[in-house]
Each structure stands twice: as structure tokens, then as C-alpha cells.
């Protein structure tokens, strides 16, 4: 078990190291999130009051889109030069490989979100300073749920003839609970309420799907 854990950690370390050297995924994800925020500003031209109502949904639309790009990217790096086969040959439990891959996706997506938030504040004149820690917690829980399901489904859709095209088609209906809870939780923060209901639902979602992903990843990658 400790060997598995060390293996998972080194997979995570490897993914982060590659990303720090190439910066491919992070750059694409962050730019895409920023562009979404920009385009939605053109689409709605919200006033300061309206930002409180539509801001949370807008942020999560941007996060979900950029997260999908990230999921596709981390997988395509493994496809090149048989990286996935090499990973599977490692003496590490398949479930732990899944957790490591999900953790890498969570790290990248969170990084893109953290860069996007200040731009959101500037473009929309939004005031998030008073509840920043709670906002980051809701974001993190939402991101974990998104990546728990996304990491597994991206490996499934990568094996279809249409590659990544099908990922959003199956991923978006599956993350409806994450999306609703994260948006509701963020809205509650903008209104000055505590997002306890959202946090509870997100925590349940995260635990359920991390556990199911851990158990089923072996079936998804077996050759």
C-alpha cells in the first residue's frame, strides 16, 4: 500500500513537472477560461448588481469549459509514445494511477481558476475579498468532483472513434450536480449566506465518484 502511494505521488510529480516545463495545458486552459469570461461579459453586459446574480454561473461556465480542455490534454500526453502502456506496467495499483491522474487534473484546473478569479474581479467589478476562503473551498470541492468524473470519462471517450469530441457530451450531463451545487454555493456567498448545503452535496459527490472511479479505473484501462 505504501508502495502504491509512493507510485501515485511520483506519477503526480511527473505530471506537474512536465507541465511546469512545457506549460501547454495551463496556458491553454487559463486563456480559454479568460476568453469565456470576456465573451460572457460582451453577451450580458452586467451591472454591479447583476454580477451578483449571474457571476457564479458565469464563472463555472468558464471553469467547466477550460477544465474539459485540460482533461483532454493530460490524456493526449500519455497517448504519445505509449505513455499509457508504460504507466500500466508500473507496479502501482490501477486505482492509485486513477487518483494520481485525477489529482494532476485537479491541480491544473485549480491553477487556471485561481488565475481567472482576479480577472473576473477586475472585468466585472465584483467584490469577492470578504468571502475568498469560502469561495476557494467551494471551487476546490467542485473541481474535485469535476475531475473525479472527468478523468475516468476522458479515458473512456479517448477509446472511441471520435476521440475527445464525445467527452463534453457525456461529461456535462454527469456533472450537473457539481455545476448546480457550485453555482448555488457561490451565489449564497455573493448574497452573504453560508454555502453549507452546497458544500455538503459537493463533498458527497466527490467521495462517491472518487470511490467509484478508484474501483472501476482498472476496467477502463485494461488492454
Amino acid at each position: 500500500m505504501t508502495g502504491d502511494f509512493a507510485g501515485a505521488l511520483s506519477i503526480l510529480r511527473k505530471d506537474i513537472l512536465i507541465e511546469l516545463r512545457t506549460r501547454q495545458a495551463l496556458l491553454a486552459m487559463t486563456l480559454f477560461a479568460l476568453l469565456t469570461v470576456l465573451i460572457l461579459a460582451f453577451a450580458f453586459e452586467p451591472t454591479r448588481e447583476e454580477v451578483k446574480a449571474i457571476g457564479p454561473g458565469l464563472l463555472w461556465v468558464a471553469f467547466a469549459f477550460s477544465g474539459t480542455i485540460g482533461l483532454e490534454h493530460t490524456l493526449s500526453t500519455e497517448r504519445e509514445e505509449g505513455g499509457m502502456e508504460a504507466l500500466l506496467l508500473a507496479p502501482v495499483d490501477r486505482g492509485m494511477i486513477y487518483l494520481a491522474k485525477a489529482a494532476a487534473n485537479i491541480v491544473f484546473m485549480t491553477a487556471a481558476e485561481v488565475v481567472t478569479l482576479p480577472f473576473f474581479v477586475v472585468f466585472y467589478n465584483a467584490d469577492i475579498a470578504s468571502f475568498l476562503p469560502e469561495l476557494l473551498l467551494v471551487n476546490l470541492l467542485g473541481t474535485i468532483g469535476f475531475c473525479a468524473v472527468g478523468t475516468l470519462l476522458s479515458v473512456v471517450t479517448a477509446q472511441t472513434k471520435m476521440r475527445g469530441v464525445l467527452l463534453p457530451v457525456i461529461l456535462f450531463p454527469m456533472i450537473v450536480p457539481v455545476f448546480l451545487a457550485a453555482v448555488e454555493g457561490t451565489s449564497a456567498l455573493f448574497r452573504g449566506d453560508a454555502p453549507s448545503g452546497a458544500i455538503r452535496l459537493l463533498a458527497v459527490y466527490d467521495i462517491v465518484f472518487l470511490a467509484v472511479g478508484f474501483m472501476t479505473f482498472g476496467f477502463v484501462v485494461e488492454e
Partner: peptide, 29 residues
């Protein structure tokens, strides 16, 4: 769109994920 040899296993995993979502979707809405 899945190749024949992998179809059954991969769709089974999607089928499990899909159904486990049902109560959570309901609760969130």
C-alpha cells in the same frame, strides 16, 4: 463509437456512473 472488443466493459462503467448520478442530480435540483 467504441471498438467491439472494448465496447461492453467501457459502456458498463459509463452505465454505472450514469445511474449513480441520478439521486445526486435530483438532490441538487
Amino acid at each position: 463509437y467504441l471498438p467491439g472488443a472494448r465496447r461492453a466493459t467501457l459502456s458498463a462503467v459509463v452505465g454505472i456512473f450514469g445511474f449513480l448520478n441520478v439521486p445526486l442530480v435530483y438532490m441538487s435540483i
